[in-house]
């Protein structure tokens, strides 16, 4: 009988450990089982991606609709090529939409915001945003102000 309570408590311990790992996976690291197959790919070329990272979010009207898969330099034109995974349900992004890299708050992380265009045709899997806006680098901006190169009359 003593052995049985021992076995039960060991079983409960191992179960608790594995359960803790599952909770860590699902609740803490946000791992969801249904990530594959429900997204499609769009590309965008930027002059400067700033602090954008893979897995940064992509938002439209403030709602997250996907995430950045990869960022690499395109050797042909010296621009950064950003590959994005967009939720399959959002399949009506007009082809003249703008992808811009913006910052959440003053010190927050950077993400891609998509502003809607007016065309009737929609972007398909593997196509690219023609219109992009690069990251705003605060250091560059301050430098410009210090050197007086920002034209106040404009």
């Amino acid at each position: 009988m003593r052995m049985r309570t021992l076995e039960i408590s060991v079983g409960a311990f191992m179960l608790a450990g594995m359960l803790a790992l599952v909770v860590l996976a699902v609740k803490v690291s946000g791992l969801s089982l249904k990530t594959g197959g429900e997204t499609y790919e769009l590309n965008a070329y930027f002059d400067n991606t700033g602090a954008l990272k893979p897995r940064s979010r992509i938002s439209m009207a403030g709602v997250t609709i996907g995430q950045v898969r990869s960022i690499e330099l395109d050797k042909a034109n010296y621009m950064a090529r950003v590959v994005m995974d967009i939720d399959q349900q959002i399949d009506n992004i007009p082809i003249d939409s703008t992808a811009s890299i913006v910052t959440a708050g003053l010190l927050g992380e950077q993400y891609i915001s998509i502003s809607i265009g007016g065309e009737e045709a929609f972007l398909r899997n593997g196509e690219r945003f023609e219109d992009t806006q690069s990251a705003l680098i605060i250091e560059e901006l301050i430098g410009k102000f210090l050197l007086g190169t920002v034209n106040k009359n404009e």
């Binding site: 191992m14 608790a16 450990g17 860590l24």
Partner: peptide, 16 residues
């Protein structure tokens, strides 16, 4: 060897 990762997982979860 078996207990240690389980204990660490529990520690992490309880800490969070």
């Amino acid at each position: 060897v078996i207990s240690m990762p389980l204990l660490a997982a529990i520690f992490n979860l309880v800490g969070i």
